[in-house]
Design a protein around this nucleic acid. Structure first.
Lengths: 135, 135
DNA sequence: AATAAGTCTATCAAATTAGTAGGATAATAT
DNA sequence: ATATTATCCTACTAATTTGATAGACTTATT
């Protein structure tokens, strides 16, 4: 399951995507409209900024805004950033791979099955962007 | 990601599925061969028994064994039992549904997307069984 | 200089995960 | 009967993760 943090991140990103031509948006504004705890949201947005998805401006008239066009930010990328692996097993993850101890990957049928699940999920998540989150 | 408990459960179930015509298998045997902490495995197997997947016999000649044919036990069912929801969001889960607070499901595009991911995953996991875990 | 906003670091409580301990119960063998 | 074998059960603990908060700091604007 996606963490609450991830859900907040998507809500905030969707909100920013809807307003991506209107200049910076206040954290407090997002927090209020999307009912996300302010300080928690601060941390999340900062993280997304450091990851290159958002940018910000300080002082009056400042706030957060998308650094790229919503259609350029993949949902899979956001999940990996905020939530971690998409795969169901470490031995099957593309970005967070870890060898399975005491298990031969070549002959593990669970491995194969989880590769299938991963690919089915990625087929969707790699082809959807923040643009698809806008109503 | 699947918990270690889930991974252990699948290893144990695969082991039992391979030996489903050979009578009861000792917990200690599974623990040793699959390198699963003994006491942890005890708890897991007991849980699977209570869920109706396994049965057991006490005393000499006892042990655990599959209650049904391996081809009758769906992978999706085991995941839900041991790991919990398969869906990425509570508002999209079939067996662990929870309403999304402060979010209108009808107009939430993330919701739609996660329904797609869920169905893509279930399409695989509901159609694979313990039999598919045997080499 | 005052104000408005994001930045940073640290901390905290609750929940979850992974694993352990040890006795209780039941089936079998002698 | 009783000793042995093996599962059953309840509780506990340690480590990690998650969700959230506090407060001082920095930077931009007026």
């Amino acid at each position: 399951m996606l963490s609450k943090k991830s859900q907040y991140a998507f809500k905030a990103l969707a909100y920013l995507a809807e307003r991506c031509d209107e200049g910076p948006v206040l954290i407090a504004d997002i927090s209020k409209k999307k009912k996300i705890p302010l300080k928690f949201l601060e941390n999340i947005l900062l993280e997304l900024k450091k990851a290159g998805i958002l940018d910000s401006k300080k002082g009056k008239g400042g706030g957060y805004f998308l650094k790229k066009d919503p259609s350029k930010v993949k949902v899979a990328h956001v999940i990996r950033l905020v939530n971690g692996p998409i795969a169901m097993l470490p031995c099957v993850s593309l970005y967070f791979y870890e060898r399975c101890k005491d298990c031969n990957e070549k002959s593990c049928r669970l491995h194969d099955m989880m590769v299938e699940v991963r690919d089915a999920s990625l087929n969707i998540l790699e082809n959807r962007t923040l643009k698809d989150l806008i109503n």
